[in-house]
Structures are given as C-alpha cells and as structure tokens.
Amino acid sequence: MGLVLSGFIVLMNCKTWKRNRYLRTGDKIVTSLCLSRWIFQGLYGIHHIMQWHLPRVFFHGYANEACVLGRIILNYITVWLASLLCVYYCVKITNYKHVVFLYLKAKMSKLVPWYIGLSVFLSVVFSLPYGWLVFFTSDYTGKITESFQNTTKKKREGPYVYFIGSTPPFIIFTVAFFLTVPSLWRHIRNMSSVGSSFRNPDMQAHYNAIKSMAAFFALHILFIMSINITFSGVMEIGIPYNSVSFVLSSFYPFLHSAVIIFYNRKLKEEFLKLFTCYRIFSQEKK
C-alpha cells in the first residue's frame, strides 16, 4: 500500500505540474520524498523476494551488496527529504523573528531545489563508507557471498556506519519539530484567549497541523529505529525478523502518505474519486 499511495501522490503532483507548469514549494518536496520512497520500497521488495527465493543467484558475487548499497542511498535520501519537509513546515508555520527564519521565509521557494540536490549529494557521501567496506576493503575484495549470514557479518563489522549517516538529518528533523509544535500551540492559545471557537476554520487548521506533525514525528522515529537495526546487523537475521523489519519499513511511508493525502484537500478528493471508481469496477466485475 505504501507503493500505491506514494505513487498516487507523485502522479497527482506530476499531473498538476503538467497542467500548470508549476508546483508549490511544499509539493516539490513532497513529490521528491514520495518518489524516493516509491523507488526505495520497490527495491526493498525485490531485495526481500530474491534473497529468499533466488539465494544462489542473488548472493553470488556482489549483487546483494550492490542492492543493499542502493537501499542505503535511497533511504538516506528519504530521511534527508523528510527532514527538509519538516523544516519547510517549520519555516512556513512559525512566526519567529530570527534573521535565519526571516531569510528562509523569503528565499525558501528558490532554495528548495538546491536543498533537494544537496540531500541527494549528502546521501551518496554518507553511503560511501559502506561501499568502501564492501567493495574496496581487503577483507572483502575477491570474496563470494554465498549466504545472507555472510552479508550480515560484513554489516556487523561496521555497525555504526549507517547510524552515523542517519543522525544529522534526524537531529534537524527533531529541532524543526520542537520549534514548530510549541509555536502552533501558543498561536492556538492566543486565538482561544480572544474568543475564537474550536470550530473556527483557522483553529481547526492549526490543530490538524499539530496532529499531522506529531504523527509524522512518531512514525519517523519508528522508521529510523527499524532501519538502523536492519542495516547495523545487531540482531540475528532470519525469516521472522526480516519480515517484521520489512513490515515496519513499509508501515511508515504508507501511513505518512495517507496523512499527506488526508490533510490535502485536492489529493483527498482525487483519491476518493479513484477509490469510488475502483469499487464500482469491482462490483461490476462480480
């Protein structure tokens, strides 16, 4: 389902861009994030299937290591873009008067394409240590990986490689979150103090923003923990754990994509139309 929802968001935003030749700043970040998640989940699914159903082919040479490296790069990209999205919400929603916030508010639309490119560049850079461990270290060069357990041993020799790379975007994400939510809460309290009703559209919008950010933050923590455990190899790898890791890794992009669709009026309307057409088609087919 994560693949479906991420693909739906990408297609809808591409449709908007084709029609208007323009995407809003937030939609650019969301589209890039959902596209990277879509590719990551597709590669993760292929990796998950092949390592259990075609092990003789997949674990010969460096095919498995190359696939894992691709997953790490794509996952770094999704983590950096998720942090960029949280920073965008922070800059857009909050009303801090610091010079950095004022500069970002004025230049965000021009800076976002550069930030997206920088996210990809940093993702590749932080993935280089793993690539060096696997492809260029003398302990690994010339070896043939015959089983998933051998790959796990390789990952255990550098258990902190992925953790170090995922820490900077997570810190940025956390700081942006804790700057945004208190600001929203103070604004809600100010509105309620002047007599605004909880049914006021502005109040509801702020409450929805807080709920969306809180869900985003909780799911992001769960995802970071799951992926760090997976890539570090600190737990024994087997079919039960691998399946749980796969489910948890898919759970976050699915739910966050659902949150994005739910709180975006246009995406929600298009999704309901598509879902209605699917139900009618299913009933007619029966």
Rank of each mutant, 00 (worst) to 15 (best):
I73P: 05
A66Q: 12
I77H: 01
L81F: 07
L85E: 12
V87E: 07
S83N: 05
N64F: 15
L54F: 15
N64R: 10
L74H: 02
G70N: 07
V68L: 15
L74F: 07
A63L: 12
P55V: 05
L69T: 15
V79C: 10
R56G: 11
A63C: 11
Y89C: 07
V87T: 09
K92H: 00
F58Q: 05
Y88E: 13
V91S: 01
C90M: 04
V87F: 10
C67E: 09
L81Q: 03
L69G: 11
I72N: 08
V87I: 13
Y76W: 07
Y88T: 07
F59I: 03
V68K: 10
V79T: 13
G61I: 02
P55N: 05
Y76D: 03
R56V: 06
I72K: 07
S83P: 02
E65S: 15
E65H: 07
R71A: 13
Y62T: 09
I93Q: 00
A63H: 10
V79P: 01
G70H: 06
A82Q: 12
T78Q: 03
Y62W: 07
L84P: 03
I77P: 00
A66M: 11
G61H: 04
L54R: 12
V79L: 13
V91Q: 00
L84N: 09
A66L: 13
F58K: 04
A82R: 07
H60M: 09
Y76E: 05
A66E: 09
H60I: 04
I77V: 13
Y76H: 12
A82N: 08
C90T: 03
L74I: 04
V57L: 09
F59D: 02
R71F: 12
R71M: 14
C67Y: 12
L81R: 05
Y89A: 11
L85R: 14
C86Q: 15
A82L: 10
I73M: 10
C90F: 06
L85M: 15
I72D: 04
L84H: 08
I73G: 06
F59M: 06
C90N: 00
F58M: 02
G70K: 10
I77K: 00
C86Y: 08
V68G: 08
Y62Q: 13
W80Y: 14
N75P: 01
I73L: 15
V91I: 02
G61C: 07
L69C: 14
H60N: 07
V79K: 08
V79D: 09
A63S: 14
G70L: 05
C90A: 09
T78L: 00
A82E: 03
T78K: 01
Y76K: 01
V91G: 02
